[in-house]
Every structure is written in structure tokens, then in C-alpha cells.
């Protein structure tokens, strides 16, 4: 599960003089639908944007396993335990797959996975806004599978034809697995929706809490909202096709009718489909809050990062044992 975080405070990439002839050849290749491989020449801007996108995606998969992990030992039936265990394992697998892709791209800069983990812990590498949110009840485990993964499928499907081959191939596999996750989430939600008063209550409460985070999921519609946006670069380089707002509209198209048909509501009285404009009208989430969240000032940012930090520190002896030659001998 994932999405690209549109952060508002990314450092401006230094302008790099590119070899114009190589650049034109490169653009011709991607415009002809060719895939770029790790060792191929690529513009610095492309490489840097990909590193940012893919490392963020990979680390979000890993951080994304943590909210669900909170409910894995508590899953209420044996079948649900198996389902959620399989799911979190997949998410870790996605993280691993993507970090490998990012590592290859970072090679020219001499950066490794260790650096990515350090960047995560010191706040330079962001993870997706939804994974900064608390999970308070079992309904949240369903909500993450159903709507968060549902949203992730949309944004990933948008990149299934990405110009960078290694990423595009990783996404093929990830999307296949994400479909199962969304079904797993939907099954949990259905059981709750058809269940006791208590179950319906925790379901509605969960949706109310997740709604703003789900709207934020796709990022602001333009750079004007948060100060910067990488969506234009990503479209120019044929990494993605649709804009943030187009994806959000597709998400609302798909899921709002389902939400309403289950007898659920969303905490936005103004939400409606405008036939004339052919789009959903909704109340904007608080984009200032979004900026705070992805700067690791969200409700659970510190605690989730703390888990990784403890794991990192606590297992130092294991890493040293695996690579004894590096430990100051």
C-alpha cells in the first residue's frame, strides 16, 4: 500500500546542465513507450524524482505495515488472523522490492539502504500521510484494507505504464497483490456493516476519522496548495498519467456509491456529484494539517518512527554480527 507524498517543503533540485543530445534521445525513447533500465542514461532530474518517489513509496509500504500490525495479534477470528498476517507480509515484501529499485538508482550518489533508514529517522525521507494516523478499533484494520488500499490501487494503476522499467515491473506485482488486500478489507467492512450495533458504530466512527486522510491521500490538486508539487514532472517523464485531482475524483466515483449503499455517511454535508461539471464537489481537507502530518507531526508519527528507531538501535548487534569486518577492527 502506498502513495507518493506531495510534500510542501521539498528542497529545490539544483539545476543541472544536461547533454542536450542525450536528453532528446531519452525523451524520444520514453515518448515512444520504451522502458528505461537502471544502467541507461537518464536526466538527473528524472533520476532524482524517481529516487524520491520510489524511496518514499518503499518506506511507506514498510511504515504502512505498522498501523495494521497493531491489529494483527488482535484479529478476531482465525481466518481474519491469517488474512491480515498475509497482508502485512505482502506490504513488507513490497517495501523490500521497492527499496531494491531505489538502491539501484541511488548507486551513482553512493547512497545505500542504511542511508534511507537514517533519512527516515531524521525526517528527511517522508512517509505517506495515512500512516501517521491512529488505528483505534478493529474497524480501522478493515478501513485501511478497503479504502486506503483502494486509493493506493488507483494511484499505482496510474503508473502501471511508468517509463522506468524496474519500477513499472515492481508495480505490476504490487498491484496484483493490492487487489487481494482491498478484497480482504472489504470483507472485514462487510461483516461489520451487516453486524451488531456495536460493529456498525465502530465502522461509522472509523470512516469519520479516516475521511480527511483519504481526501489528502492523493495530494493537493496544485502546487499552489502546499508550495510545491512533483506531479507535473512525473507526467512529463511518463511516470504517471493522471493528476492528483483526477485520481481523487476517480476514487470518489468508485467508493462513494459503495459507502452510501452500506448505509454509511461521510463527515461532509456538502459532498455531492455535480452533473453539470461532471465531478464530485467536496469540502477540502485542511491542507495545513496535511503539511504538518507529513513533516512527522501527525497524531502517530512519533510513535511509529519510534518503533523503527528502536528496531534499528536494538538490532545493531545483529547487523554487526552479519558484517563483522565493518566493525572497527
Amino acid at each position: 500500500m502506498y502513495n507518493y507524498v506531495e510534500d510542501g517543503d521539498s528542497k529545490t533540485t539544483a539545476y543541472v546542465e544536461e547533454d542536450q543530445e542525450k536528453y532528446e534521445q531519452f525523451m524520444a525513447r520514453i515518448e515512444a513507450g520504451e522502458k528505461i533500465e537502471a544502467d541507461d542514461w537518464m536526466p538527473t532530474e528524472y533520476r532524482q524524482a524517481l529516487i524520491k518517489l520510489i524511496s518514499m513509496h518503499g518506506i511507506s509500504e514498510i511504515m504502512g505495515a505498522l498501523p495494521e500490525k497493531e491489529w494483527t495479534p488482535k484479529a478476531p477470528t482465525l481466518r481474519r488472523k491469517l488474512g491480515i498476517m498475509a497482508k502485512v507480509q505482502d506490504e513488507m515484501g513490497h517495501g523490500q522490492l521497492l527499496l531494491r529499485v531505489a538502491e539501484d538508482l541511488m548507486k551513482p550518489y553512493g547512497k545505500t539502504r542504511e542511508n534511507l533508514m537514517e533519512d527516515l529517522l531524521n525526517g528527511d525521507l517522508k512517509f505517506h500521510n495515512v500512516f501517521h494516523m491512529p488505528t483505534k478499533t478493529w474497524a480501522d484494520a478493515g478501513m485501511v484494507g478497503w479504502l486506503v488500499d483502494g486509493a493506493a490501487i488507483m494511484s499505482q494503476t496510474n503508473m502501471l505504464d511508468a517509463s522506468y522499467g524496474p519500477y513499472q515491473r515492481a508495480l505490476q506485482r504490487i498491484c496484483q497483490e493490492e487487489v487481494f488486500h482491498a478484497q480482504h478489507g472489504e470483507a472485514i467492512i462487510m461483516a461489520l456493516a451487516e453486524g451488531t450495533d456495536y460493529q456498525r458504530e465502530i465502522l461509522q466512527e472509523s470512516l469519520n476519522r479516516w475521511w480527511p486522510a483519504l481526501l489528502m491521500f492523493f495530494g493537493p490538486s496544485s502546487a499552489a496548495t502546499t508550495g510545491s508539487s512533483k506531479q507535473d514532472i512525473m507526467i512529463k517523464y511518463r511516470v504517471r498519467k493522471s493528476t492528483n485531482e483526477e485520481l481523487r475524483q476517480a476514487f470518489l466515483d468508485k467508493y462513494l456509491p459503495r459507502v452510501f449503499s452500506l448505509g454509511l455517511t461521510v463527515p461532509d454535508e456538502t459532498v455531492h456529484y455535480d452533473e453539470k461539471e461532471g465531478k464530485w464537489i467536496y469540502q477540502q481537507p485542511d491542507w495545513n494539517e496535511f503539511k504538518q502530518i507529513i513533516r512527522n507531526k501527525g497524531p502517530r508519527s512519533k510513535e511509529r518512527l519510534r518503533l523503527r528507531e528502536i528496531a534499528y538501535e536494538n538490532n545493531r548487534w545483529v547487523r554487526q554480527a552479519l558484517v563483522p569486518e565493518t566493525i572497527g577492527s
Binding site: I62, A65, L66, K69, T72, P73, K81, M85, V88, Q89, M92, G93, G95, Q96, L99, R113, L307, R308, I310, A311, N314, N315, V318, R319, L322
Partner: peptide, 15 residues
Amino acid sequence: GAEWLGLAPHIEEDV
């Protein structure tokens, strides 16, 4: 084992 998820020495081990 499920309590360990996300806390293993490296990502490959978590998987």
C-alpha cells in the same frame, strides 16, 4: 512471531 512484525533486524528478515 506476529508481534515481531516490522521490528526484525532487516526488511528481508521481516518478509
